[in-house]
Design a protein around this nucleic acid. Sequence first.
DNA 1: GTGGTCTAGACCACC
DNA 2: GTGGTCTAGACCACT
Lengths: 127, 127, 127, 127
Amino acid sequence: MIQVNYRDVRPIYEQIIDSVQKLVITDALLPDEKLPSVRELASKLAINPNTISRAYRELEREGYVYSVCGRGTFVADNRTLKTEHVRALLQNFDETAAELMDLSVGKEVLQKRLDRIEKGVWNDTGK
Amino acid sequence: MIQVNYRDVRPIYEQIIDSVQKLVITDALLPDEKLPSVRELASKLAINPNTISRAYRELEREGYVYSVCGRGTFVADNRTLKTEHVRALLQNFDETAAELMDLSVGKEVLQKRLDRIEKGVWNDTGK
Amino acid sequence: MIQVNYRDVRPIYEQIIDSVQKLVITDALLPDEKLPSVRELASKLAINPNTISRAYRELEREGYVYSVCGRGTFVADNRTLKTEHVRALLQNFDETAAELMDLSVGKEVLQKRLDRIEKGVWNDTGK
Amino acid sequence: MIQVNYRDVRPIYEQIIDSVQKLVITDALLPDEKLPSVRELASKLAINPNTISRAYRELEREGYVYSVCGRGTFVADNRTLKTEHVRALLQNFDETAAELMDLSVGKEVLQKRLDRIEKGVWNDTGK
DNA sequence: GTGGTCTAGACCACC
DNA sequence: GTGGTCTAGACCACT
């Protein structure tokens, strides 16, 4: 479930954080569900355990997961996180759209893109 | 033209960078046009010249301006920057919209937001 | 003869300088030959005359051309420039090749590239 | 490991950048390995911490390292950097060789230089 | 302790 | 005058 792209410019721990965040936000991982252990995930992804550890620590700091010493790391039950996440996305959406319109990209263009995305044909060829 | 908000959380040099980028992208500053000198802008904004220098340096690195030692800093004549900027914004738009729909934010909601933004009523109350 | 690519990241005056340097070094422009006037070249390339002027000034400073007030700009007769240019290129060649071999790119690979370049099939597809 | 020559014309921060880049590219520094802290390296090289900081900042921007506030600066795990580096060197090699041949430097001359470089006798006398 | 930011002031080369 | 570099020293947030 948690995937990493070695060829990505972003550091691996950041990719892991994003990956877990999405799984939590989209309910793909449910509250109190156990995450793979640091060592398990490390060997599975062929990555230094320290990298995983750092990612989990960061996720705990941000409230996405909680760790129980000697037992493992689990998904936190924090509904406010989701609404906060959506709020941030909407703000980003507004700002991006506003700047695009400033640069004379018509509203119609953006609406067509929304249509395409809704139909699930959103991909690299959809530029 | 170039403005800075001292109470902003973002570092001053970053605000200057964003400010100049927008001026260049929107053609408010034309190619080969001279930017205020480091010392001039520094005294105008009541800021240390080093901070301006840093902003100009990064802008040069990113291709928005070019500096000629002893003469000044000028707007770069790079038209690809603008199309690249729009391309990046559109990609951000798509990704954000897709993630929002994933989180069951309906297309209609986003379209209403586009309407509001188009009408220029996009502001803090629109969050 | 002098060409400029507006979509290039490099500033235009730099492209002009490089362009003229090559023409002089390769004897495409002979000593005492007249260069197009600032205004003429400016209108031909649809560029601000100041940009041309800056390029010519720089070329004069580096010894590639000389300007006669009221008459125009001419190619300098400086044979040492060419040997110096070749020397710089050879040093660059050596350093680049050494670093490539350091990174375990075999000599054979580089030799094949020389062959291809000699045959004139050196182009973008020749990667 | 990281060395600086105060008598070099190049700025110190640039020497540090080049130094670290080579260590990363040649795998002398492995992904997630910790670099000396800004203050540590500064005192070791008898240099102002700001200069180190600037070098690290630019290295982060270019993707060679990543910094975590409060923890330190680490080698980025980006394998594409290395292939990209080789690609850029090969392009430089091609362009330089092509220009040399244009200036009637024979292929044989360049091949002899490759031989010399391979045998490790590439040094100042090889100019 | 770590890096990130900013200020103040200096010297250089170039125009 | 211009930008480029470097130093010295300060404060911040984070671990």
